[in-house]
Simulated assay, not measured.
Amino acid sequence: MAQNLIAHYRFATTQLPESSNDDINARWLSTILDLDQQRHGTPLLSPRAEAERVQGCCRDQTLIAVGILRQHNIPARSRVGFADYLRPNSRVDHVVAECWLDDSWVRFDPGLAGPRGRVADPHDISISDDSPFLTAAAAWIGHRRHGRSIDDLGVSISPVEFTGAAFVLSYLIMDVAHRFGDELLLWDSWGAMPLPGTPIDFGLGDALAELVQLADQGDLDAENTLRKMYETDSRVHVGDEVLRFSPRGEPPVRVSLGRNQAHSDRAIRNY
């Protein structure tokens, strides 16, 4: 369903109409579903021509999958990081999903129809240290503790050039927000997310990455501490508005979030 509704704004195999370019800023699941129904008005599994789908990206496909799982009372969350299986010899910024099954988190990629690269089964992606999906926390720790290069991590598409520690910290904050149900756009910015050319709060990054890593390993104290930090620390928590950038190079704009709508999207609506 996620693949049927969303056409990737950058990697579609057909030319997408300019009239739907603003689809990529559909922040909430309800908005994505409304856009789809305005164009089709048919069940969500009825095939859509690629050019008639909602323009979006991996975040949107993951958001749909997470919404479906939550509707069926299966705990689910999205994870923000980097994948090495989408393009040869490249680590691409990416969003995947995790759901709670059989007393553990299972990681999967809603955008993959079958095996790709090091991913043999897109429904069960390894969460080991050598996972083909690198969380933002793992990338940060690998750089800070072990000196691993992260210069290739980020966005380098003219006119946008945003890579390295600043980008990884932004995605680390983004991953924490997504973890606790605020699945913002990948080009939203708030709190201590460093804009290009601004100072980087390395201490915050170290603290967040360690908590995320411990929480991912099942440390409930770390999970609770991370949640409290997200709820109370303005450097991490999403407020009433964000600065929305554009992957197409358009000027950034301040956007009010409308928090009631954000929380209403915890469950997918029935279409």
Rank of each mutant, 00 (worst) to 15 (best):
I64A: 02
T42G: 10
A83L: 03
Q15E: 11
R70T: 04
A83S: 11
W28H: 14
L63M: 11
W28R: 15
A76I: 05
S19Y: 05
P43V: 02
R10Y: 05
S46D: 15
R79K: 12
V66Y: 02
C58W: 02
D60P: 09
I24P: 05
D84N: 14
T14Q: 11
D34R: 15
C57H: 12
H40S: 11
F11R: 10
N73R: 14
A65D: 01
H72L: 13
T14C: 12
L44G: 12
C58E: 02
I68Q: 07
S78L: 00
I68T: 05
Q55A: 14
D84C: 09
S46P: 07
R70C: 02
S19G: 14
G41A: 05
H72K: 10
A51T: 13
A65W: 04
L63H: 03
A49T: 13
Q61I: 04
A12I: 00
H40K: 10
L35P: 07
I68Y: 08
T62M: 06
V66M: 00
Q55R: 15
P75Q: 04
V80Q: 01
E50I: 08
N73F: 11
D84I: 01
R79S: 01
F11S: 11
Q37N: 13
S78C: 04
S30P: 12
D22R: 13
H40P: 07
D34K: 15
D34T: 15
P43G: 06
H40C: 09
S46R: 13
A65K: 04
Y85S: 09
P75D: 06
I68H: 06
C57E: 12
N25Y: 13
L69S: 12
H72R: 13
I32P: 13
V54N: 13
N73K: 12
I64Q: 02
L33Y: 09
R77S: 03
R77K: 14
P47A: 11
W28D: 10
L69W: 06
G81E: 00
G81C: 01
G41N: 08
R79H: 01
I32W: 07
L35T: 06
T62H: 04
I64H: 03
P43M: 08
R53F: 09
R77T: 01
R39H: 08
R70I: 01
R39D: 01
G41D: 02
E18R: 13
R39F: 03
P47G: 09
T42E: 14
S19R: 15
P75H: 06
L69D: 10
V80P: 00
R59D: 00
S30F: 11
R70F: 01
V80K: 00
V66W: 01
L45E: 15
P17I: 06
F82Q: 03
H40R: 11
G56M: 06
R59F: 01
G41W: 02
Q38S: 14
L29N: 07
T13F: 00
A12D: 02
Q61G: 14
T42P: 13
R48P: 10
P75C: 09
G56K: 10
T31G: 11
L33C: 09
R10H: 09
Y85V: 05
R10F: 07
C57I: 05
P43S: 05
I64N: 04
I32Y: 10
A83I: 02
S78D: 00
E18V: 08
N21M: 07
E18M: 07
P47T: 08
T31D: 12
A83G: 06
D36V: 08
A49S: 15
L16W: 03
L45N: 15
R59S: 04
